[in-house]
Amino acid sequence: MTDESPAAVVDRRLDTLRALDEGAASRATLADRAGVSRSTVDRALRELSTVGFVTSTPAGYRPTLPGRLALSGRDRHVRRIEALAAVAPLFEGVEVGLDVDPAVFEGATVVEATPHAPTDPLDAVADVVGTATHVSVYTGRFLSRHARLYHDRIMEAGTTGAFVTTERVIERLAASRPVDTRDAVASGRVAIRRTNRDEPLTVVLAETPDGPEVGLVVYRGGAARGFVGNDDPAATRWARALHERLWAAGTPFDPI
């Protein structure tokens, strides 16, 4: 039985809908544009008209506003699926409990660790943080290299930071860099909060002169599997909202 749902009609009659998107046209013109027969165009127009995505005008058939939006929405859906497929290797064997907005991955820069370049994801984080005036960070993993990076930016470049992390990371930080941690907090440019949320991720929202940018690092075990970077407004809004929720639920940490 043929699926008559609007989504199924769009998928089934995509060629005709794209041909209509080029401008109003007759049935014959649409058949030429789509490279299909007149009978196929007739059936496509009938189905698309039934769901309200096509209308007939004196200039020819044209898509309605919902029809144009349906086409662009379908194309965006495909782009998102392709973007998710591109980052899928980073999440193999990794359990993530956070709700991550797909916008984080759409149009993103993806840097995967390889045996020959295991630190490339960490270099990508350094690039994001390198021009930041403020960083909002959640991390469930401790890396000495990241700790040094943030300390140098805070103490030498005047970057400010709000960090939400787990008790385990705080213990590692206090044990390995106690003086740096005390100095950073004492400077007034850093605040740290504990969270019980233990995820194999680091999420950095960097405020830069060019605007906000989000960097996400995925870990498997203690190693960084890859980096995803994006400055799309939807991606940075997600990172900001995530940090605000975790910050509000966290408890203050004072190493002094």
Rank of each mutant, 00 (worst) to 15 (best):
P118Q: 01
V129S: 00
V96N: 12
V110D: 00
E213K: 05
S176Y: 09
Y138F: 15
V190E: 00
R189L: 13
E156T: 15
V190K: 01
A117H: 12
M155L: 12
V204I: 07
R245D: 12
F227V: 08
T159E: 11
T64Y: 00
V185D: 00
A224N: 01
G107E: 00
P255E: 02
L173I: 09
E167F: 09
V96L: 09
D198A: 14
P233C: 04
P212T: 04
E171F: 11
V164L: 01
E4D: 13
L45N: 07
V104L: 15
L122W: 08
V135H: 00
P115M: 08
A44E: 01
R68Q: 06
G211V: 00
A85T: 06
D101Y: 12
G107M: 01
R245C: 03
T181R: 11
E82K: 11
D123I: 10
S5V: 13
L216C: 01
P115E: 05
V203T: 09
V203R: 04
R43F: 04
Y61C: 05
G107K: 03
A103D: 05
G93A: 03
L65N: 13
E95I: 15
A44N: 07
V204S: 01
T119V: 09
G222K: 10
R237T: 10
S26R: 04
A25F: 08
R225D: 02
V51R: 10
P121E: 05
A117C: 06
